[in-house]
Amino acid sequence: MNPDRKHPPQNGPSKGGASPGSALSQPLVETEPTAGRAESPVWLVVLLGVLLFWAQLYIENYAGGFNPRVYDPYRSYAQVDAANPKDETGELIAKGEVLYSQLCVACHQGNGMGSPGQFPPLAGSEWVVGSPDRLIRILLHGPTGPFKVKSVDWNPATAMVSFGSAFPPDQVDANIGAILTFIRQSWGNNAPLIKPEVVKRVREETKDRSAPWTMDELLKIPETP
């Protein structure tokens, strides 16, 4: 066939150049690259150390503690929490749950159902979800005499104690507000929170009273709009 002029000459292996006749000093036998034995420069290792130090500083400052709820520009979960509007109801419920378990659960039980014949239920009770003014007074000074709760008459031998003086003066409003908010949001009850300010107002209004309340007295107090 036609002697293909594009093939290199038959004597000798291919050379390293693209066009025949160039690169005379390219090796006749193709060699593979080898690696020398020079040492790594120490400044590079030092740089690695410096960068590692910097990297851990950077991550410590800007990684938000690896918390999945921390996004730029916040640097920590605490910052995100602080930037959020306070959930007053939630905080009151949480606190009230603790206080209830300490002070109220013995009588009204953990499920808010009370005990037949002894302690009236709180679940579904119109006194709990009704007027805050009446409810706060029950807690501040205690109830006395027969009460009608959910169409059932209650007149327990052991009266409920009052809690108006059970707490130090600087905590009484917050604690009562917390307990009442908790019971108003538990066991199917869904009534609005009772803020500590409201408890304080009622306390001011009744500061001259220390006797417990009867049902008739409470029913005379108007429902707060």
Partner: peptide, 14 residues
């Protein structure tokens, strides 16, 4: 401004 831009160690006002 939330977060660190322009502030120092103080967390943002909540």
């Amino acid at each position: 401004k939330p977060g660190g831009a322009g502030t120092t160690n103080q967390p943002p006002d909540g």
